[in-house]
């Protein structure tokens, strides 16, 4: 039985970390990681079978790929908080000579990162390959991939979707951060995605939906997704989230996709988020 309060406390701390990280360098993307705080907390503290003693091949472990690399601040926070590296290193985010690059990279050997991401649309293809390698190695563990909803405008995502279903990759769970916002505005205005549920279904995927900001739902749905694995089809979860979740003046606006808070905004934001695990 997962302790919900523990996951909530991680999510709250993750939000504080993200805000402090992007504020410190006056750059970065706070909106999406704030919306994915519950999901990332649930993944690293409950769903994934993983070890912070990182090795690239990850044999016998679940693998997590972040295709929407601009969530980096949130990912770095949850990696540090789950023991992949010292939380103090979060203070180097986006600074010169850091392992915590603006977008995730492998070149500096940061534990937890298996492929660079940032240029959108590539992660699901990489996850396909990693899932195939697991099958070739008779490794029963699963491969997860988080994508942004705006990212689904990239054609390569649909190449990867077609491949996964066509080749029966049933050890793969994709999660779409469906916050409805992208840099230039609401996704429906920039380039409507249409009926996403029907699209994925017609591509041959098993489709689930959940509210990504409600921890119980996240845990239940991830559990359901795991049970659907091994049945010849890949699984996708359309995860509704609120961009900027947890900070009242940031919630639901695309304006916080790639803008850091100023000093005053940071203070206001942090006042709404409990420091649960100690700031870095």
């Amino acid at each position: 039985m997962t302790d919900l309060r523990k996951l909530e406390s991680v999510a709250s701390q993750l939000r504080r970390d993200v805000l402090r990280m992007v504020h410190a360098v006056k750059s970065g993307h706070p909106g999406a990681p704030l919306g994915c705080a519950e999901f990332l907390s649930a993944m690293y503290f409950s769903v994934l079978r993983h070890s912070p003693n990182f090795d690239m091949d990850g044999k016998g472990q679940d693998l997590f790929f972040l295709s929407n690399g601009h969530l980096s601040a949130g990912w770095y926070s949850v990696l540090a908080r789950s023991g992949y590296f010292d939380v103090a290193e979060l203070s180097t985010f986006r600074k010169i000579n850091s392992r915590l690059q603006g977008h995730p990279a492998t070149e500096e050997n940061l534990p937890g990162v298996r492929v660079a991401s940032g240029s959108l649309g590539q992660g699901l293809s990489v996850a396909n390959g990693a899932a195939l390698a697991k099958k070739l190695n008779n490794d029963p563990q699963l491969v997860y991939c988080l994508l942004g909803d705006g990212e689904l405008q990239e054609g390569q995502v649909w190449e990867a979707a077609m491949f996964a279903a066509g080749k029966n990759i049933d050890n793969l769970i994709a999660v779409v951060d469906y916050n409805g916002q992208q840099i230039d505005g609401p996704v429906d205005e920039v380039m409507p995605l249409g009926d996403l549920h029907a699209k994925w279904k017609s591509f041959g995927w098993q489709v689930l939906e959940m509210d990504g900001n409600v921890l119980e739902q996240v845990l239940e749905t991830m559990d359901q997704a795991k049970r659907l694995c091994g049945q010849g089809k890949p699984v996708v979860i359309l995860m509704k989230t609120v961009m900027g979740k947890g900070v009242d003046f940031m919630e639901g606006s695309h304006k916080w996709h790639g803008s850091p808070p100023n000093d005053e905004q940071l203070e206001k934001a942090l006042a709404q988020l409990e420091e649960t695990l100690g700031d870095y």
Binding site: G121, S125, V126, N128, A133, Q156, E159, F163
Partner: peptide, 26 residues
């Protein structure tokens, strides 16, 4: 046959899949 993957006319996807296959030692 089990070590070959036909990806169809989707080269971008092929490059990503190849990158992923290396994770696991291929």
């Amino acid at each position: 046959p089990e070590r070959f993957f036909q990806v169809g006319i989707a080269e971008a996807n092929m490059m990503g899949i190849a990158a992923g296959l290396t994770i696991g030692g291929k």
